[in-house]
Amino acid sequence: MDEITALISKGKSLLEEGNFEDALGYFDQALLLNQNDPELWNLKGVTLRSIGRYEEALECFNKSLEIDPRDKFAS
């Protein structure tokens, strides 16, 4: 498992547990390694939305769609 996959996996686990702040940290670390993954931007957006940071979440969802306009997972 490469580093990005491990970071995303840990972030998803924390997100599912409701540990949003820590999940956000893992998604941010993964984005430092790969800025071109629409799913990763979407995950960050979901996390930000979960903690009430709606404008930042919207920016992430828009970034996801900018990378892949057909992204069926963009929230």
Rank of each mutant, 00 (worst) to 15 (best):
L48Q: 14
N36Y: 05
L48P: 10
S13M: 06
E55T: 04
E17T: 01
E17R: 01
K72L: 10
L43S: 12
L40W: 07
P69N: 07
L31K: 02
G11Y: 02
L48W: 14
D22E: 11
D28R: 15
F27P: 03
I8K: 09
L32G: 14
A74T: 01
R49W: 14
G11D: 11
P69T: 01
S9M: 00
I67Y: 04
E16R: 12
E17S: 12
N62T: 09
W41K: 04
L24A: 15
K72R: 04
G18H: 11
L15M: 02
S50F: 09
Q29P: 07
L15R: 04
A30Q: 03
C60S: 11
Q35S: 03
N62V: 12
M1T: 11
Q29L: 12
S9C: 11
L43T: 07
S64I: 02
Q29D: 12
R70E: 05
F20Q: 11
V46H: 04
M1L: 06
E59M: 06
F20A: 04
R49N: 05
S75T: 09
T47I: 10
S75G: 12
K63A: 09
P69I: 08
L32M: 05
R53Q: 15
A57M: 03
N34C: 00
L43D: 12
A57F: 08
N62S: 05
I51C: 08
L15S: 08
G25V: 13
L32D: 14
S13F: 06
D68A: 13
F73M: 01
E39P: 00
I67M: 05
D71N: 12
F20M: 13
D71Y: 15
S75D: 04
K44T: 14
L24S: 08
L14G: 06
N19S: 10
V46S: 00
L14K: 06
L32H: 12
D71P: 09
E55M: 12
T47S: 00
T47C: 14
E16Y: 11
R49E: 13
S75Q: 08
I8W: 03
G45S: 07
N42S: 15
L43K: 07
L15K: 01
R53S: 15
I51R: 15
E56G: 10
G52Q: 15
N19W: 07
N36G: 01
A30G: 06
N42M: 06
E56H: 12
L58Q: 07
F20K: 14
L7S: 07
A23V: 13
